[in-house]
Design a binder for these strands. Structure first.
Length: 385
DNA sequence: ACCTGGTCCCGGGCTCGGTTTT
DNA sequence: AAAACCGAGCCCGGGACCAGGT
């Protein structure tokens, strides 16, 4: 963000007397180009990437760290920077290989498997980084896409380093599957697998990303508030409280910050108060999932979740909740029921047993496991109506 | 035995957009 | 140039069936 933008935001926030200067800066789904407090990890990753600077590919690399430790933030920042490194028309690093003197190009491709689930989508995601032309979204076969990818790499003496983020979450593309898909171009592609743990039977290099320590999390929050909130909206004691409460999880810390700021703005105050912090901590579930897990779902599922949080399941059996939601939407109760069970299976919502009522199996209800206010705000900002 | 909750799976239809035919 | 066709993804609906409780 340039200085003009910063000034413009300050002015408009000042006119509206709002605590929030720039909501984007507070969002847990937005990554910084220069992650705070992750310097040593960046160095270790660059060590692992070393062969790239000679136009060669490193072996398989894993970047693993607990939830909210910034693995995704670090990888996306690093890949963006590497792609822009030479800043000219081609966004890749061009180097001259020692052997032969042919120019070789290395591409850095980040794939979020929360949003890329099929073979078709995977090839498309990789190709759209490498290819200068727009890549079709439909209308052609998967094999055709794979062949084009082959031509762009093998045919042009180019390499690609592909990051596979969230490989270990349910229902995403697993590492094995990705290797299968990359098999035809295995000679010019290597992978960086990113997640909470390494793939089964891992034999490559591993870079561990530790959870944030309390003072690092304080830095993360301070960094965000300095550009996202008006001056003095949050005092240092509150920052420390949030950091301590989040227990090393930057997602939880930022989700709570976002929630508190949104509540304060709704209350039209110029300072985030006790009640806003309390509300925020209650709204971000302990051991919950990243809000992006919910935001990556299809629109129909997001609508069901919106209805679920707005009618507040209130400890009622899934069946009743499903029929209530069905009444508000175009879906049948049966479909909503299936959605709810599927979402619970994925861990986006949690099933909570209820006391039995007479005969039959005991019912359960469902509760969100993601920060609900962040979800509501960001879906509303998106196109889910 | 009977009931209700929960799981699993698949067919069919729809949209999108590129390709081929008229 | 328009129309017909096709590959692929996505989505919904629903039914068969399994599990656990009285």
């Amino acid at each position: 963000m340039n200085i003009q933008d910063r000034i413009a935001r300050r002015r408009s926030a000042h006119r509206e007397r709002s605590v929030v200067v720039d909501r984007e800066q507070l969002s847990p789904v937005v990554h910084r180009p220069d992650p705070v407090g992750r310097g040593p990890v960046l160095e270790q990753l660059l060590d692992a990437f070393e062969p790239v600077f000679d136009g060669e590919l490193p072996g398989p690399i894993a970047a693993v760290g607990p939830a909210g430790s910034g693995t995704s933030a670090v990888i996306t920042a690093l890949f963006d920077a590497l792609n822009e490194r030479l800043g000219n028309s081609s966004r890749a690093i061009a180097t001259t290989t020692r052997t032969g003197g042919l120019e070789s190009v290395t591409w850095f491709v980040y794939v979020d498997t929360r949003r890329v689930e099929s073979a078709f989508a995977f090839y498309r995601a990789v190709l759209s980084v490498i290819s200068p032309d727009p890549v079709p979204e439909s209308g052609i076969g998967t094999a055709e896409l794979r062949d084009r990818l082959y031509e762009h790499l093998e045919g042009k003496n180019a390499n690609a380093l592909v990051a596979i983020d969230h490989h270990d979450e349910p229902e995403t593309l697993g590492y094995d599957r990705v290797c299968e898909l990359l098999e035809p171009i295995a000679d010019c592609v290597s992978t960086v697998v990113v997640g909470q743990r390494e793939p089964e039977g891992w034999a490559g290099t591993t870079v561990s990303v530790p959870a944030y320590r309390p003072h690092e999390l304080v830095d993360v929050i301070t960094d965000r508030t300095s550009s996202g909130l008006s001056a003095g909206a949050l005092d240092h004691e509150q920052v420390r409280e949030l950091a301590e409460w989040a227990d090393g999880n930057a997602h939880d810390a930022l989700a709570a910050l976002f929630t508190a700021a949104t509540c304060a703005k709704a209350d039209d105050t110029d300072h985030i108060g006790r009640e806003h912090i309390d509300r925020a901590m209650a709204d971000v579930p302990e051991n919950g999932v990243h809000v992006d897990r919910a935001l990556a779902l299809s629109t129909s599922r997001q609508r069901v979740l919106l209805d679920l949080v707005s009618l507040d399941a209130g400890r009622r059996p899934i069946r009743d909740v499903a029929s209530d939601i069905a009444d508000r939407s175009e879906l049948t109760a049966g479909t909503v029921k299936r959605f709810l069970y599927e979402l619970a299976d994925r861990g986006v919502i949690e099933r909570v047993p209820l006391p039995g009522s007479g005969s039959g199996r005991r019912p359960s209800t469902v509760e969100p496991r993601f920060p609900t206010l962040v979800f509501r705000t960001l879906t509303a900002a998106g196109s889910v109506s």
